[in-house]
């Protein structure tokens, strides 16, 4: 759990350097553009989380009690935020993921993208990530 929070705090510190929302968004857009996020074979119906606004694909692998996430979206801003979520949660212990409190999104001023009214698939994606954590933890 400590590790998850450490990464969250790192991101918060990084975002503190941005002068305004435009710099923040430009960074998010760059993240979204540059990351090869998911193996093409997982971009199918089974891995799709359908939002009203944008779509998200999520895949989870287990490696020695840790969960590795890959994901993608058709919208680049959504994809940039996914990159941050993956940085925080991927490679962490299943139990920690299930219990995590993702406060960094609010702290870096992007909470509107994780609001149910946006319906961009991100809320369901975070739920799904925690579910994977919960399921793998129960199995072990």
């Amino acid at each position: 759990m400590a590790e998850i929070n450490n990464i969250q705090n790192e991101i918060i510190d990084e975002f503190a350097f941005f002068g305004d929302w435009m710099e923040k968004y430009e960074y998010i857009i760059d993240l979204g553009k540059s990351l090869p996020l998911i193996d093409e074979q997982y971009k199918d119906e089974d891995h799709l989380i359908k939002g009203c606004q944008s779509q998200v694909w999520l895949h989870a692998d287990e490696e020695e009690g840790k969960v590795k996430f890959t994901a993608d979206s058709d919208a680049v801003i959504t994809k940039g935020i996914i990159a941050l979520l993956i940085r925080v949660l991927s490679g962490q212990k299943a139990e920690d993921i299930a219990k995590s409190d993702l406060y960094f999104i609010d702290k870096i001023g992007l909470k509107e993208h994780l609001s149910p009214t946006r319906s961009n698939g991100l809320v369901s994606m975070v739920k799904q990530m925690k579910m994977y954590g919960l399921a793998l933890n129960a199995k072990s």
Partner: peptide
């Protein structure tokens, strides 16, 4: 994507 344009 429309979402990206709308968000900005």
């Amino acid at each position: 994507h429309p979402y990206d344009l709308g968000a900005i």
